[in-house]
Design a protein around this nucleic acid. Structure first.
Length: 525
RNA sequence: GGGCCUGUAGCUUAGUCAGGUAGAGCGCCGGGCUUUUAACCCGGUGGCCGUGGGUUCGAAUCCCAUCAGGCCCGCCA
């Protein structure tokens, strides 16, 4: 059984309606790991829905988290905001300086993030954590945590093996300058926390407002109860023994709620093109990745793997493999009745079908629609030899891959394909490079029969209409005339034009070439 | 120091929880396709299941040890 379906079963046994959650800090750096976080949770949510269960998927934005440091894209002036919640500081402008008209820092990065998620079919209920604080929803849990301060401390020390400082307090107030750093709690009278900040200023925070927040390990445990979260997949940093998941579970119970089903996923990494991307300086953000990779393939990468298994997401040659695999699965979904299959085959069949189902951008849609009738490889070829999209659609109509106007799925695929083909990640081996002159290797591989054919072809092409179809006819006629094997004829052409023994449809390729150059190549032999 | 994940064919991997003769896809090789959408079809090659022990009638699977890679234990998924 697929992990998402299996988790849904486990949650069903827990009973009640499900709330699946993800949480991400909008510090600005949106990376592929976030995609795994989001998709793992969202697929479980879908699996619950598919199983006929009640389920919601919420995305908690850690907007109350403070700015930790000055990232590369931030101006030094952000120094003044370190320690301030991301919801309450200004977004950076294009120059990295705080932009007074740019809205909040958290919102600024959230917008494009949500847009990217929509592209891969994820539309969560968004919860801004700072609003939850402002609404007072954290107040009861906060009070409870403060009351049980020693017990909470004990859990953290025992489970994490870490020593908690003497002046530790399970609530972190905002100081007089709006920073969470360096504020020391001096007393508590429900619902007020008294403090003195790093400037020596004394003040009071009301736990029913956004005047402070819970430390991470408690915040997480508290929100599980507040939102009724039943499952929140977490990265292995949180899932490690003694990590925040392990402290969160008992703390959640101490605060009077049932903790969610623990689930820990391994990391995903973007493996750039061939050589080490660090040395070439080529890196890929997930936004870039989504600009290259069809959304259903992105989902498939997550859906086909196991949660506990490390994923190297390769935007180089392996992308062809992944796309091939996906397309094969769509074209020939595993079939067979239980009677005909071994137990193992049944499991493989069900897992693959589920992976395919969960890879669809739109839940419940036909996987065949995602491919839009054209293979990824074929599109890669067309994107290289046809510079104009309309010519691509024409070509597809002639080859009866397309009827009428291209679908959104197809134009989307084409847009991303062009990004890929034109970018640094596209594998050299897949590049169609027309030779400037016939190379040595090509010469060595051409037989007399080959040369005879090419010579005849160059004459035939000399005054032929320069379209795909006419060129194709011309090639066929020449093959018949010379009496060469069809395979051999094309091999000769590919050697002369590309310096390889195979290639994309020859006539399409030739029609895109300049006639004179083509003739010089094939007559050169 | 403590902990987690992974190691099966050239590559990607299924099978490990409930032990019973190692499955698949890709690649590769051969053949076919009256003749190229890097296609398609058929056949074939290929694995002391990281290593060493143990338990067992029987171990990829359970136990112990060990090696290798990745990672966490600083609020980076």
């Amino acid at each position: 059984m697929h992990w998402a379906d299996h988790t849904a079963q486990t949650l069903r046994d827990r009973g009640g309606s499900q709330v699946i959650a993800s949480g991400i800090t909008p510090s600005g750096e949106f990376h592929v790991g976030h995609l795994r976080e989001i998709l793992t949770a969202e697929m479980i949510h879908r699996a619950c829905l598919d199983a006929g269960m009640d389920s919601r998927y919420i995305f908690i934005v850690d907007s109350m988290d403070p700015l930790r440091r000055i990232y590369d894209f931030l101006a030094p002036s952000y120094e003044q905001y370190i320690g301030h919640p991301l919801a309450y500081i200004p977004a950076p402008g294009p120059d990295g300086e705080p932009d007074p008209d740019g809205g909040s820092y958290a919102e600024h990065f959230l917008g494009p993030f949500l847009e990217a998620l929509r592209e891969i079919g994820v539309e969560p209920e968004v919860v801004m954590n700072h609003e939850t604080y402002e609404s007072g929803a954290f107040a009861d849990k906060t009070h409870s945590a403060i009351e049980q301060r020693d017990e909470v401390r004990q859990v953290i020390e025992e489970v994490s093996g870490r020593e908690v400082p003497e002046d530790w307090f399970p609530y972190n107030p905002l100081g007089s300058d709006g920073s969470l750093d360096g504020v020391r709690v001096t007393g508590y009278e429900h619902p007020h926390v008294h403090w003195v900040d790093s400037h020596g200023v004394e003040g009071t925070s009301d736990i029913r407002t956004g005047q402070g927040k819970l430390p991470w390990r408690i915040d997480w445990a508290a929100r599980w109860g507040i939102h009724g979260i039943t499952c929140e997949p977490a990265g292995k940093d949180h899932g490690a023994a003694g990590g925040s998941y392990d402290t969160g579970i008992p703390i959640c119970e101490m605060l009077g709620s049932q903790p969610p089903h623990k689930m820990v996923y391994e990391w995903i990494q973007l493996k750039g093109m061939g050589p080490m991307s660090s040395s070439t300086g080529v890196t890929v953000g997930p936004m870039d990745a989504l600009g290259l990779v069809p959304p259903e393939i992105m989902r498939y990468v997550i859906a086909r793997g196991k949660v506990g298994r490390h994923i190297d997401f390769d935007t180089g040659p392996a992308l062809f493999q992944t796309a091939d695999e996906y397309e094969r699965l769509v074209a020939e979904p595993p079939r067979g009745s239980d009677d005909d299959l071994s137990r193992r085959q049944q499991v493989a069949r069900d897992t693959q079908l589920a992976a395919l189902r969960l890879s669809q951008v739109e839940r419940g849609s036909d996987p065949a629609d995602s491919i839009a009738g054209v293979s990824f490889r074929h599109l890669a070829m067309l994107a290289q030899i046809k510079s104009n999209d309309d010519d691509v659609w024409d070509s597809l109509r002639r080859s009866s891959h397309l009827d009428g106007e291209p679908s959104d799925a197809l134009t989307g695929r084409m847009r991303r394909m062009r990004n890929w083909v034109d970018g640094a990640h596209f594998p050299d081996a897949a590049k169609i490079v027309v030779q400037s002159s016939v190379g040595e290797e090509a010469h060595a591989n051409l037989t007399e029969a080959h040369k005879e054919f090419l010579s005849a072809l160059s004459k035939a092409l000399a005054d032929c209409e320069w379209t795909d179809a006419v060129i194709a006819d011309c090639i066929r006629a020449t093959i018949a005339e010379v009496g060469i094997g069809g395979r051999d004829a094309y091999v000769a052409l590919y050697w002369a034009i590309l310096g390889k023994h195979h290639g994309p449809k020859a006539s399409s390729l030739m029609a895109e070439m300049e006639g004179e150059h083509l003739l010089s190549l094939i007559s050169e032999t």
